[in-house]
Amino acid sequence: MEKEQYQQLEQNVTPKPPYFKNVAKAFLVGGLICTIGQAVSLFYIIFFDFTEATAGNPTVATMVFFAMILTGFGLYKKIGQFAGAGSAVPVTGFGNAVISAAIEHRSEGLVLGVGGNLFKLAGSVVLFGVVSAFFVALIKFILVTIGVVSW
């Protein structure tokens, strides 16, 4: 059998990923996580001296804490398998990426294991997040300077 012929056969046999179903699941779970996040944020605003602007930090910390608990008990991977991007995109997904790497590499010690591999998966998120933030700010700065928009 020729390669092309086999690739044709492979295309026919392999089931197409259920895109619509995946999108719906991601929307629901992602929305649920964000709703919980909003509730946590409101909790900090109402019961503590945080404003909408300052409540972000403790909220993110709390959501990452939740992700840590779920990852530690092996539940986050199950949510991830069901929700896909829905649980990967919110900050809990970032937390999961960091924490799962930390748990995984605990056996190689604290410095070289956990320290060296903590950002194995999340490192590129941090890097490209910072880089893209820089370029977005740069573009806005240029637009403001030439007078297209204001700050």
Binding site: K77, G80, A85, S100, E104, H105, L121
Partner: peptide, 8 residues
């Protein structure tokens, strides 16, 4: 990936 990483 790490065992507990939630990828689909």
């Amino acid at each position: 990936y790490p065992i507990n990483y939630g990828s689909q």
